[in-house]
């Protein structure tokens, strides 16, 4: 069970810190606030934003990581989105993609639908679920010191790695990236593969 520690981290600042030195990582974001967080840092051709497909961010990252074993793939998604496809953690752990990192912006809320509490507000421990699924590297982050330790893990520790970052539910301005699916797909593939 998750311990009850005070939650102080601001999600926008956390995502900004994670993406500041992103190098050539390929980023997949889950629908809702994680997509706005990434957009707030700056749109990027190596970003693929999910605007739907709730529960699919981690698995989209898995397929991408299997297809591009030499590139680091980072998935940033929310706790509600992760819970909806939580069996995917087991699927990822069985595949053992060494280049896949998963980072949860865990505000313990369904932020897009009225801030209803998710299961993580009530003791469900996503990092422990990842451990149960078979992840060797997992952690829960509550403060900047732990975040500073977690960021290198996301970028260079042998994957799959899982980091659950506890963030406040303070509202953030909406920053919307492009949402036309074919455009996002073509841009991502062209930048990665040199063709659409």
């Amino acid at each position: 069970m998750a311990s009850r520690r005070k939650i102080t981290l601001d999600r926008r600042k956390v995502v900004e810190k994670i993406l500041k030195d992103r190098g050539d990582i390929l980023l997949v974001t889950g629908l809702g606030a994680p997509t706005w967080d990434a957009a707030a840092v700056g749109d990027h051709p190596n970003n693929f934003y999910l605007w739907g497909g709730m529960g699919g961010a981690v698995l989209t990252g898995l397929g991408l990581a299997l297809a591009q074993p030499k590139r680091r793939v980072l998935v940033i998604t929310g706790d509600g989105e992760m819970l909806m496809g939580v069996g995917g953690l087991a699927t990822v752990a069985v595949q053992k993609p060494s280049n896949l990192a998963i980072c949860i912006m865990d505000n313990q809320r369904y932020g897009e639908t009225g801030m209803q509490e998710t299961h993580t507000e009530h003791g469900v421990d996503l990092a422990a679920m990842a451990a149960g699924a078979g992840f060797q590297k997992y952690s829960t982050v509550y403060n900047n010191r732990e975040l500073a330790e977690a960021i290198p893990v996301l970028y260079s520790e042998q994957g799959p790695v899982f980091v659950d970052v506890k963030v406040t539910d303070a509202p953030q301005p909406m920053t919307l990236p492009p949402r036309d699916g074919p455009m996002l797909k073509h841009r991502f593939r062209e930048n990665l593969l040199g063709h659409v």
Partner: peptide
């Protein structure tokens, strides 16, 4: 099964 739709979406993004 829904995991599979997402995996194959990622596969295509990655060129497979």
């Amino acid at each position: 099964e829904q995991e599979g739709i997402a995996v194959l979406s990622g596969a295509w993004l990655g060129g497979e």
